[in-house]
Design a protein around this nucleic acid. Structure first.
Lengths: 237, 237
DNA sequence: CGCCAGACTATCGTATACAATGTTCACTAT
DNA sequence: ATAGTGAACATTGTATACGATAGTCTGGCG
């Protein structure tokens, strides 16, 4: 098997740092654990389907089981963890069908977001988007991968927020996370030309061309879906 | 002690019954409490903004605080409860803007669902929808309010499921619940003519007319939004 | 008369302990 | 050899207990 797990049977050290600085104020432990666990799952540190025992996690985080339980309940609602009463929790599994459905829905919502953004963004937001566009173009020209990856993430969020619908933002965030998760369990995608699509969408939004923005955004996600499909196929053989 | 509560001081009796029959198997207490609390909030038994203390709920349910805490965390993710670390939980509040955003998004998603449903429903599902349509028409003719209310709920769910996208179904369920919640805090809406709109949508879906189904479904929710806006206005004065 | 400081109370955050359930595996009987 | 059985183990579910923090109230001071 290609099971190249970093076999130090402890991915804990990373974790420890994450909530070390909470002091005893502000963020509560259960929230810190929720965030850390979520990040760990999304980044693929836990394999899909892997079992998550309460005592195991509690020991890894060096806390009692209570905060862990609460975190698991939250992650279950978010769809990242699957809990069977009196049996335990596992990292959720995504079927091939579900992956397709995620992409399909994300494509529609991204289109919707772009449409709203194009219609509604204020001059201030428009200026921000313009700045994002410039930065991205610069990074794309110099092929600065790190910056581009960063900007890719902010891009989707900015468009969503500009659409001015909180619930749409929330749904998109969830779907974005799932997309990220899908990629984490697959070969590295081909991101070439990705920014150019983003740039085209941004230009349309800035120009208040809602129809074009919508079509481009939807198609953009559909392209991502094709990347995933291709990667999945390659993985199968 | 204070365990004397077969009396109907409104809330507790319902609650008690809800998880009385869990035996000790299958559903765990925290899940039962989650469901009961969710239903109580959605039906307006708890006022928006009302404080939810852990001990208070624990006593009401006659359990310890742990299951209550887990339930509250879940309901927070669902957006029904708002938790401030070390301050406590309250029933969430919806601003007027948020209500509008819910309706706006629901309209889009309902349209999307109807579109997918019209394209994808199998002959079997189509038959089920036809049956639903017939039943609804009968109940509408005889003005059977109770049955109509029931069918109205199943209608939205059936369309969503027929659209064959699990995540869309989940999002719609959340938005539907929120709509129900909005109505629970407002004067009784005018549901006259509601079924006729449903019927038209069903006919379009059954006829596989995706475009018409989409437009009708979207408009239907927008009409609901107008009802809400009107009710809100009346409430204000 | 108003305001700040300190204790006091209510409530949340977490840990520990025990009970109930599910799982595994050796052992026996067919 | 295989299927059934039951006991030991692993894990979750829930309760209780203790510590920490935010909100409140009272009393003294300016």
């Amino acid at each position: 098997m290609t099971d190249e797990r970093p076999e130090n049977d402890q991915e804990e050290p990373d974790f420890a740092a994450a909530w070390a600085g909470i002091g005893s104020s502000h963020k509560s432990i259960n929230m810190a654990i929720t965030e850390t666990l979520r990040a760990a799952i999304l980044s693929g540190k836990f394999k899909a389907g892997e079992r998550l025992t309460e005592v195991g996690l509690a020991k890894a985080f060096d806390v009692s089981r209570n905060p862990v339980r609460e975190a698991l309940r939250v992650l279950e609602v978010e769809g990242l963890v699957e809990i069977n009463p009196r049996k335990g929790a596992r990292v959720a599994l995504l079927t091939v069908d579900e992956v397709q459905e995620i992409i399909e829905l994300r494509a529609e919502l991204e289109g919707m977001s772009a449409k709203y953004a194009a219609r509604r963004c204020s001059d201030e937001v428009r200026a921000n988007l313009q700045q994002l566009l410039d930065e991205g173009n610069r990074a794309d020209a110099t092929n600065d991968i790190a910056v581009l990856a960063e900007l890719n993430n902010t891009f989707h969020n900015q468009i969503a927020v500009a659409g001015k619908n909180r619930f749409l933002v929330g749904f998109m965030k969830a779907l974005n996370e799932k997309t990220q998760w899908i990629f984490a369990n697959r070969p590295e995608p081909n991101m070439a030309g990705n920014w150019k699509e983003h740039a085209a969408i941004l230009e349309a939004v800035i120009a208040a061309d809602d129809e074009l923005a919508s079509v481009l955004a939807k198609r953009h996600v559909e392209d991502i879906g094709k990347e995933i499909a291709k990667a999945t196929e390659e993985q199968e053989r």
